[in-house]
């Protein structure tokens, strides 16, 4: 019996291997750095392993836990503020025959359309004048403008996926508009809204430029700490911080994948 080997598997295996290296190579490097006590050129692997830097990061004098707390607080406030705007906006955009509906949706993209740096420098200057610079509300406001595009687009899609008949059915048997929204529309749109909340949360957790201009040095988020450590040549601290940032991102991405149904995704931007 002849075993036929599909020669196409050779390039495929090569490409897959390359892809795995591109994705997991830096991650492995990062993980190695978190446990390296001593590592310098030209050595392929660390010379000494240990967790002394972990102790430093998590020691009461280390800023990591405090920054993590600040980051999570800012992210949570950003989610609350974004959803408070995105739920009514998304509902209106999905239900009402608003003129220029596409244009309104596009308008939320504007903060993304301009280069971040000049925008944030101007915001920082303005916030400085009104005393918002270096405060948590200031950073939250910057993060909200950034996160709102995800929040509104996904919320609009989530509400569009709830058929209007379902709402009308509640109205017809005695539910007022708010009751129908609370009992029918909101629970059915909840998975999509949850997904948008997670996106906004992760965006806020990751955000650097705005936090740097508006928050530093009074408000230190995890990315700012990472930047300071990295710029100071302390790769161990930077790697441990990066790993801390990675955990909620990966965890939430797995949740989002379960929450975002195809029928919601297909309505994004419509």
């Amino acid at each position: 019996m002849m075993v036929r080997i599909d020669l196409w598997w050779l390039p495929r295996a090569f490409v897959l291997g390359l892809l795995a290296f591109v994705i997991f190579g830096p991650l492995t490097n990062l993980v190695l750095w978190t446990v390296a006590e001593k590592w310098y050129f030209p050595h392929m692997l660390p010379l000494e392993y240990g967790v002394s830097f972990w102790q430093r990061v998590f020691s009461p004098r280390g800023n990591a836990m405090e920054s993590l707390g600040t980051s999570v607080l800012i992210a949570t406030l950003t989610v609350i503020a974004s959803l408070a705007l995105a739920i009514p906006a998304g509902y209106a955009l999905s239900r009402l025959k608003l003129p220029f509906r596409g244009l309104i949706l596009l308008a939320f993209l504007i903060p993304q359309a301009f280069p971040n740096l000049p925008v944030y420098v101007n915001i920082a200057r303005f916030f400085y004048q009104i005393g918002l610079n270096g405060t948590i509300p200031g950073v939250v406001m910057v993060h909200v403008t950034h996160g709102l595009v995800f929040a509104v687009w996904i919320a609009t899609a989530a509400f569009s996926a709830v058929e209007i008949d379902l709402e009308d059915a509640a109205r017809s048997i005695g539910a007022g508009p708010i009751q129908a929204f609370r009992d029918v529309t909101l629970p059915l749109a909840a998975p999509g809204l949850m997904a948008s909340a997670i996106f906004v949360f992760l965006e806020s957790l990751d955000e650097f430029t705005g936090s740097y201009f508006v928050g530093a040095p009074d408000v230190t988020t995890l990315p700012l700490l990472l930047y300071t450590a990295g710029a100071g040549g302390n790769y161990q601290i930077a790697s441990i911080t990066a790993l801390l940032l990675l955990v909620p991102s990966i965890g939430f991405m797995l949740v989002v994948e379960r929450f975002l149904r195809a029928d919601v995704l297909s309505k994004v931007g419509h």
């Binding site: 058929e163 008949d165 379902l166 009308d168 059915a169 109205r171 017809s172 048997i173 539910a175």
Partner: peptide, 14 residues
């Protein structure tokens, strides 16, 4: 609609 004392059965059942 909710104040009219009627009930509608939808084509899609809803």
């Amino acid at each position: 609609p909710d104040k009219r004392g009627m009930a509608l059965v939808f084509q899609s059942y809803a």
